[in-house]
Structures are given as structure tokens and as C-alpha cells.
Amino acid sequence: MAPVAPRTGDAVFANVERVNAELFTLTYGAIVRQLLTDLEEVEEVNKQLDQMGYNIGIRLIDEFLAKSNVTRCVDFKETAEVIAKVGFKMFLGVTASVTNWDADGTSCSLVLEDNPLVDFVELPDTCQGLYYCNILSGVIRGALEMVSMKTEVTWIRDMLRGDDAYELRVKLLKQVPEEYPYKDDE
């Protein structure tokens, strides 16, 4: 099979079906609001958003791979770049920048200047512990898990909490080899 050239985030974004950004933002807002009502505890809402994101991520990764023609990344650095430049562009219409690599190249920050999820959001005093966009961290975690990377994704900076950007810390915990579980001597 002839390899197909990977497509850029912009090219994929131009080709996929899109919905009105406001509908998307408001729907997400409604979900978070409903979770707050149902679960009452802000901590629980964070957890639930992360779980929802995870469930999305494990399915979304295939669409990402199918439509972007991205091939296997050689290292985690490339993976982070692809998420920031192609993944975010394809699904959210924005790009992130990758910074703050640690010495051994296993954790980095994805910085979002622009985040369509929060267009109309002001966090009230009662929700101070809420990571409003926690679904995003779940999505990344779920998606990477399906391509055999166990990661931990946490929010470092959040504009809703008064920071100057959105910063996600992605830490590679371990790379699960996708070899079959049979060994020669078993």
C-alpha cells in the first residue's frame, strides 16, 4: 500500500464537517452545569469530566488517525507536536504550542492561547476548584492510551482562574509495548 502523505491540521480542519462554535460552547457549558447540579461536589465534577473525556478520546483517536493520515511517531516529542498542531486544529480549530520539556523528554506543556470551550464562561466563587476544561485532559489521556502510551494530563494554568493562558501538562508514564502477550518460553 503506498503511504499517503500526512495532512496538516488546517487541511483536515477544512475537510471535516463542523458545527456552529456557539452551539458547541453552549452545549459543553450545559453539560458542565448539569454535572455540577447532579454531583454537587466540584471535585467529583472534575473527575466526571475527565472520565467523559477519556471515553471520547478512546474513540476519537481512530478518527484522528483515519483523517489526518498521521503515521507512527518516532518519539514522544513528535507525538506532542502532532497533538498540538494537528489534533487541536482538527477538532477545536485552534493550535497549541509545545513548551517546557523536561530533561528526559517525557513531559511537556501544551499551551493554548485560545480556547473555544470558554468563550462565555466566568467561574463563580462557588466553583473555584473546578477545572472547567477537564474534558480536554481526559480526551488526550484516552487517545494516547489507545496508541499504547500511558499518560497523566493535568492543568497547570487556567485563564478562568486568572492565569494568562491555558497550560496542560502531559506526562508520559510508560509506553506499553503493543507486542502480543506471548513469550517464546511460555
Binding site: V4, R59, D62
Partner: peptide, 18 residues
């Protein structure tokens, strides 16, 4: 057939996984 399989993969992501 390679292109067809690729297309089927896209259909799978669109109509099965979603």
C-alpha cells in the same frame, strides 16, 4: 484495495465509533 480499506476505516470511525 489499499485506498478502499482506508476509506472503510474512515467509515468505521464515522459511523461506528461515533
Amino acid at each position: 484495495m489499499g485506498a478502499l480499506l482506508k476509506h472503510i476505516y474512515e467509515l468505521y470511525t464515522d459511523f461506528v465509533l461515533k
